[in-house]
Every structure is written in C-alpha cells, then in structure tokens.
C-alpha cells in the first residue's frame, strides 16, 4: 500500500494540512489502515523533495485545533498529478507467486511419516474461516449496500472487507482443492509412495518425453519463486 500515492490523491482535491491528511486517509480506507502523523510528515517531506508536492501559500498558519503551532499546508504539483495518474494505471506485480508458508506446510506435511495431512489442512481451514467470520461480522454490523444509509467511508470499508474476504476465501478453496487432490492420490496409492526423488526418477525412466514436457513449466515456476527470495 502506497501512503505516498494516497497522500497525493488527497492533495489532488486541493491544499491540505498534515493532520487533515491523516484523518482523511483513515476515513477513506474505511479506518482499516491506521497511519501515524509522523509517517504523514515524513512522506510529505519526501514528496516535497521529489517535487511532487509544494508548500501552499506564503505564510505558515495555525492549523485549527492544534495548540497554535504553525502548520504547513501542501499542494500537489503538476509533476505530482502526472505521477499519480501514472501510478493508478500500473498494475502491482502479481506475476511472481509469493513463497507461501501455507503451501510449504502442506508440502512438508505429506512427507512426514505419521502426519495426518487432512487434520493439518483442517486446522488451517478452521483458522481461515474464523478470520472470515470476524471480517463478515464487521460487514454485518455496517450498513449493507442495499441500505440507503452510509457515506463514502462505509463504501471504502465494504470494499476493503470484501478484498480480505475474497483473499481468505481463495486460500480456503485452495485447501479444499488440495484435500481433494490428496484424497485422489491416496486412493490411487500415490500418496504413501516413494519420496519425490524416487518418483521423479521413475517418471523420467517411464516416459522421458512426458517428463521433459512437464519439467519446463516447473523450471519456470522455480525461477519465478526463487527470484522472489
């Protein structure tokens, strides 16, 4: 999440003070991302250094509600506006699969003798569903999309909660799919079979053309995941 660009977005509406930026940031992200005021000022300084924002007006004025300390208002520059427009359209990198601890744990669980992999999967599934319940409870307490109540803060909140729910849901679905795959493998006697090195060797000797074809995507994946290290 880019605090830098969030502040630029808020300043694109007009000049603002630091404290005001913090309040507006929290309100628009559904108050899910807390931001301390030190972070705001540090970010503003860097933005000013890079020429993306500039001090607004000649004289520092007292910000309402503070103890008379002089506060500086900032405004977005043309370079800042261009940077913001550019940033909105650049997709975040999703091409490199993350090194997923959960995937690792399941891969390891199937190799440890005497480990009930389904029980391991269920422990993770339970945890994820509980987390989803907590998010959904927040959503249930907030006004629904079909209610006419609720301002832009509620809308942002709904979007943020949905993003989390879809993310967690995708992990639960992966666990379901993994369990199905493991059960089919177990039914075919492939789960308790020899370790990977032996099975890879037998696959290579059994059908070299097929294993050659399979090896290529594996190598690509390995490079990508390895690249994230």
């Amino acid at each position: 999440m880019s605090v830098r660009h969030a502040l630029l977005a808020l300043l694109s509406e007009g000049p603002k003070y630091g404290l005001q930026l913090r309040e507006e940031f929290e309100a628009r992200t559904g108050e899910v991302w807390p931001l301390n005021v030190g972070q705001v000022y540090a970010t503003l300084q860097r933005l000013e250094r890079d020429g993306l924002v500039a001090a607004a007006g000649e004289d520092p004025v007292s910000e309402p509600g503070t103890q008379g300390a002089p506060q500086k208002a900032y405004e977005i520059t043309e370079v800042g506006s261009a940077e913001l427009a550019q940033w909105l359209r650049v997709p975040p990198d999703q091409s490199t699969p993350p090194r997923d601890d959960l995937v690792m744990k399941i891969l390891i669980a199937i190799r440890i003798p005497g480990t009930d992999v389904y029980e391991v999967i269920q422990a993770h599934r339970r945890y994820l569903v509980q987390l989803m319940q907590e998010w959904t409870r927040l959503k249930g307490d907030a006004p629904g999309a079909e209610d006419d109540g609720g301002g832009p803060g509620d809308l942002a909140f709904g979007l943020v909660v949905d993003a989390e729910l879809f993310r967690l849901d995708s992990v639960v679905r992966w666990l379901d799919a993994a369990e199905g795959r493991l059960r089919r493998a177990a039914a075919d006697g492939r789960l308790t079979a020899a370790p990977a090195s032996a099975s890879a060797a037998s696959a290579a000797s059994g059908a070299s053309a097929a294993s050659g074809a399979a090896a290529e995507p594996v190598a690509v994946l390995r490079r990508r995941i390895g690249g994230g290290r």
Partner: peptide
C-alpha cells in the same frame, strides 16, 4: 462457500 458460511455464529 466459506464466504457465506462466515456469516454464521458457528461453523
């Protein structure tokens, strides 16, 4: 569906 189930008090 885990998203639907997550509306429940208990799953």
């Amino acid at each position: 569906d885990a998203q639907l189930a997550s509306w429940a008090d208990r799953v």
